[in-house]
Every structure is written in C-alpha cells, then in structure tokens.
C-alpha cells in the first residue's frame, strides 16, 4: 500500500527538519507547565479540603487529568496548522508534486499518506504529554480508563484538524499563507460554540455543533459519546475528500 510509503516519507521529513523538534519542545514545555499548575492547584485544594475535614479524597482524574487534557486540546489547535502548512504547499512550490502526480499513485494514496504521517507525528506529541500522566502513578492510583478515552479524543480531534490543515495547504503554494489560514480556521472552530452563550437559537446551535472543542468535552470526562466520534470522523472524511477535489482542480488549472 503506497499510502504507507507516503506516510513514512512525511514522517521522515518532519524529523529531518528542525520543525518537528521545535514543535516537540514547545509542546512538551507548554503541556508540562499545564500539568505542573494543575497538580499544584490540586495539591492546594486537597490540603484545604483535608483541613475542612472532608473525608473523601479529591479525584485526580477529575481535577488534574481532565484539565490537562482540555488544555492540550487547545494547544493542539495552535500547533496543527504549523504541522500541516508544508504538506502540499511545499510540494507545489518545489515541484515535487510533479513526481507524486506522475507516479503510479492514486490521489487518495497521496492524501491519506500525508494525513497518516501527520497523525503519527501528532500522536508522538501526545505521547510526550503522557509522560506527565505516568508520574501521577508514582504518588497515587488514578483510573487509567478516562485517560485512554481522553487521548483517543485528542487523536480524533487532531485527525479532524489535520485533515482541514491539509485541505488548506492544498489550495496554495505558499506555506506561510497555508499556516496563517489554517490557524484562523482552527481558531474559529474553537470559538464557534460561543454563539450559544448569548442566544440559543437553532441556527446558533448548528454553528456551535461545528465547533471542534465542544465535542472534546465528553472525551475529557472519560466518556465516549457516539455523536462526538461521528462528528470527528465526518470532519476527517470531509477534509480529505475536499483535498482530493482540490487536487483535481489544481490539475485542471495547473
């Protein structure tokens, strides 16, 4: 399957350039800080609770893991455009797209390969944050199941945003344009659910439904909600399908 060849090449290029290490360092630093502050907050609160004579201990999953995962999902919004901006834009600028298109590859293999490579890269980033989570086990026994569900949610959300980022990258040959446009779209998808804050009309509910982050809430709580899974998978399929259309149109106009 040639999609894997493309995915391998994408991954290879991520780790050959300084981009991957920059993003990894940045991601580890920021999520590490979130983790540190969440744990600090948790310690202070549980100390207070103990002084006030609360008998049941505070839940680590609820107070630390959930917050950290929600924060990671937001940081992902900022990082994903950086990961996908090169995707097609760079291949178009340097002309390597001609190699891919004139090779016996289906468009779908190229697109899925690129998406898969980016997804594995994103999973590597998430793996870095999991190191923080593991340290929790040194001092307590948090439930591992909500964590797994949370990471599944992050992966699905990442997959959806990567598909959108790749779509945007396929429309331009300038990676800066792709990066900025991808960032704007991710930002919009994040804040769209604010519209229900002031008026809960049907239209606003529909707009809020499109928001990427609101679908992550249930995952952060450790709940796999089918409607959220369907949402993310729809976004992935739609994003990749539109990328295929975009490649087709590029071919006719090129």
């Amino acid at each position: 399957m040639n999609a894997f060849t493309i995915a391998k090449k994408e991954l290879n290029l991520y780790f050959r350039s300084p981009i991957a290490y920059g993003i990894m360092g940045f991601f580890a630093l920021v999520t590490g800080f979130f983790f540190y502050s969440a744990v600090g907050f948790f310690l202070q609160r549980s100390m207070q609770m103990a002084q006030m004579g609360q008998s049941t201990p505070m839940n680590v999953d609820e107070w630390v893991v959930r917050n950290v995962l929600s924060n990671i999902s937001v940081v992902g919004l900022f990082l994903i455009p950086m990961m996908t901006m090169r995707s097609f834009a760079e291949e178009k600028r340097t002309g390597t797209i001609e190699l891919l298109i004139t090779s016996p590859l289906r468009d779908s293999e190229i697109i899925i390969g690129k998406w898969l490579g980016a997804l594995v890269m994103y999973a590597t980033l998430l793996g870095l944050t999991a190191v923080n989570m593991v340290t929790l086990y040194a001092y307590g026994t948090p439930d591992w199941r909500p964590m797994v569900v949370g990471y599944l949610g992050l992966l699905l959300q990442g997959g959806a945003l990567l598909a959108i980022g790749i779509l945007i990258s396929s429309t331009t040959r300038n990676q800066i344009v792709a990066g900025v446009a991808g960032f704007c779209v991710c930002l919009l998808l994040w804040v769209l659910d604010w519209v229900t804050a002031f008026e809960a009309s049907t239209l606003n509910k529909v707009i809020a439904y499109i928001s990427v982050v609101s679908h992550f809430e249930s995952f952060a709580k450790g709940v796999v909600d089918l409607k959220d899974v369907v949402y993310y998978i729809t976004m992935i399929v739609l994003g990749l399908f539109l990328t295929a259309r975009s490649m087709d149109s590029m071919r006719w106009r090129a």
């Binding site: 050959r16 002309g95 190699l99």
Partner: peptide
C-alpha cells in the same frame, strides 16, 4: 514513463 521536470523534483532534506 520516467519524467524529469524542469526543476528536478527533489526533497532537499533527504
């Protein structure tokens, strides 16, 4: 077909 476009389609990092 083997095709060499005007600018060789190379990945500089490879």
């Amino acid at each position: 077909i083997g095709y060499l476009p005007e600018t060789p389609p190379l990945y500089p990092d490879m």
